[in-house]
Amino acid sequence: MSDSILVTVAMAIYRPNIEWLKEELSSIAAQTYKHFQVYAWNDDPNDEYDYDFLFSQYLKSIPFKIYHGLHNLGSNKVFEKLTELVQTPYIVYCDQDDVWLPEKLSALLYLFDDENVTLTCSDMYVMDENSKVISDSITKVRPRQILYSGADMISHLLAKNFITGCTMMMKTEIARKAIPFPTFFFHDWWLASFAAL
């Protein structure tokens, strides 16, 4: 991979717990892969918190931009707007309360060495409100959650989504073709199904 920015982190914000957001930004800044930028969209038009200052304190050497809408759009439309704005080859979706392992971006990006890959994703740890890990796999918390992989996943995805938005990286050109995001799908389910097709 080249030294230029290849990945954009697309983060939706709506009245976040600031302490959790700080923890998240710290984990994003600690990524071993450094060629990325962050686009965040604040979906509360009445929120006057200084997110630019907060992000600058934690993402010291990471380019970022924070967008504000005039109206509350909801998470699906926010992620759609962010997807429209992204110009890098890869996009990573991010909620406002995630905490990333340091190798997240490098591990997901590595899987794109196969040119036929459209989307990569991972399992995830589950934490409580005090940032204590309570499970090292979502499948232990949701026993019916099965993580599938491979080229023919559409039948599994149509039955039930198992790809969580905060665990996935996608080729931006494919994500942009999935616009507009339908209102009857959550963005991650829609994007995963689109990528599988």
Rank of each mutant, 00 (worst) to 15 (best):
T8N: 05
D3T: 02
D47T: 10
H68S: 12
H68T: 10
F184T: 15
E19Q: 13
G150D: 03
W100I: 06
A30G: 14
L105M: 05
D52M: 04
K60A: 07
L157V: 12
T88P: 09
Q87F: 13
Y90R: 12
P89K: 03
D123W: 15
S2H: 08
K65A: 07
W100H: 10
S135V: 10
W190N: 06
S193M: 13
A178Q: 06
F184H: 12
G150F: 12
A40R: 01
Y110K: 13
L157R: 10
V9L: 14
Q87D: 15
L191V: 09
V9P: 01
I28P: 00
N76T: 03
L101F: 13
E103Y: 03
N42M: 10
T139A: 07
F181I: 12
V141T: 14
M153D: 03
L21C: 06
S106G: 02
Y67W: 11
L82M: 05
S75Q: 09
G74W: 04
N46E: 13
L25P: 02
M11R: 00
A178T: 07
A30Y: 06
E173M: 05
V117C: 09
K65H: 03
T183W: 04
F181E: 03
A40N: 02
T83C: 06
I5H: 00
W190H: 15
K60D: 01
D128W: 13
F162G: 05
K104N: 08
I28T: 01
T120H: 06
N161T: 11
I62H: 01
E80W: 01
T88M: 12
A107T: 09
H71L: 14
F79E: 05
H35R: 09
G150Y: 00
M153K: 01
E103W: 04
S135L: 08
P63Q: 11
A10Q: 06
A151P: 00
L21Q: 01
P182Y: 01
A40Q: 02
R15D: 14
K22C: 12
I179R: 05
C121M: 04
F162W: 07
E129V: 11
L25M: 11
T167I: 05
C166E: 08
M11V: 03
S106M: 11
H187N: 13
T172W: 10
W20V: 10
M1K: 06
A178L: 08
